[in-house]
């Protein structure tokens, strides 16, 4: 399954370039070669800037100012963290839209070490207004989200990963479900599983009396669905399971449940730098994001009153 979302991104973007004459795909060398065919057909709209990520984002802003719909792509640390001021000023502050599509996620490229890991990207973007942040858990979801983003004019971050669920939980009746979907119902707590961690969460909560919600989009945060799910619980208790920095969406839960006494546990990638290489699976275990680690955390949380 490795890289399947990124391959889908290339295939779908290439198709969309043929039908959307305002669409442009921007790269900074990474993945650029996979767009060679598209570049031959659309040399003015498939643009590779070389290893220049600040320019990648600024040029996306400039293209949007000229009435284009830019899709900019790189690995997450180089797309979000390195040019963050360009995102803040050349997209948000200019009041223009763009689609940023990352690959690599938190530790897909674990063997490359810290330089290629980006657990903080969603937290960083969450400091800015107006972003739709999509965290697909399956290539079919990523495709639907990309098609929707290409048709729109807002600010969209599409966070692709090599990790994937077996099924597209976010697709219902052949269509992308935008809000949280209920995967399991219970009464002791609400567990929100974000993107590719859904299958691990379902395995971890097997036999537990909890509701499991699935989120392939975390901004805007579906406060309405969360409140409805909490209303069915014996007490307002929420566990967030996010495939990036632990606690990133805890403020959203606090806002959604601000008028209720509630408990919340934010699970995700730890803040400490591991300085380990190895596989993504090993990193998931180290951060407690495998099904056994998640079950220990959820059971422990349920046992606290």
């Amino acid at each position: 399954m490795a890289g399947i979302m990124r391959e889908r991104f290339v295939d779908v973007s290439t198709q969309l370039l043929d039908t959307h004459d305002r669409l442009a795909v921007l790269t900074a060398d990474l993945t650029s070669a996979l767009f060679d065919g598209a570049r031959e057909r659309h040399p003015d709209r498939v643009l590779n800037f070389g290893i220049r990520e600040q320019l990648l984002i600024s040029a996306a802003g400039g293209l949007a100012l000229a009435g284009m719909r830019p899709i900019a792509h790189s690995f997450a640390p180089f797309l979000i963290e390195r040019p963050f001021e360009q995102i803040k000023l050349d997209l948000n502050h200019q009041a223009v839209g763009a689609v940023l599509v990352s690959a690599g996620a938190s530790y897909d490229i674990s063997s490359s070490g810290r330089t290629h890991q980006s657990p903080g990207d969603v937290a960083l973007l969450s400091t800015l207004p107006d972003w739709t942040i999509d965290v697909p858990g399956h290539a079919d979801e990523a495709e639907a989200q990309l098609r929707e983003a290409a048709d729109g004019d807002g600010l969209v971050y599409l966070r692709l990963s090599n990790q994937s669920n077996a099924h597209a939980h976010g697709i219902a009746d052949g269509r992308l479900h935008r809000g949280f979907r209920t995967l399991r119902q219970g009464t002791a707590a609400v567990v929100i599983a974000v993107g590719p961690l859904a299958d691990a969460v379902l395995a971890a909560t097997e036999g537990l009396d909890v509701t499991v919600l699935y989120a392939a989009t975390v901004r805007p945060f579906d406060a309405v669905a969360l409140r409805a799910a909490v209303a069915d619980q014996r007490e307002p208790a929420v566990v967030l399971v996010e495939p990036y920095l632990a606690g990133t969406s805890v403020p959203e839960v606090a806002d959604a449940l601000g008028d209720l006494s509630h408990r919340v546990l934010g699970l995700g990638v730890g803040r400490d730098e591991l300085r380990n290489y190895g596989s993504p699976r090993q990193h998931a275990i180290a951060h407690g994001l495998d099904s056994a680690g998640l079950r220990r955390a959820v059971v422990g949380f349920l046992g606290q009153k």
Binding site: G62, A64, A66
Partner: peptide, 12 residues
């Protein structure tokens, strides 16, 4: 850098 993008966009 913004102007580079705008020049590219207008050209496209």
């Amino acid at each position: 850098p913004l102007a580079v993008g705008t020049a590219l966009g207008l050209r496209a």
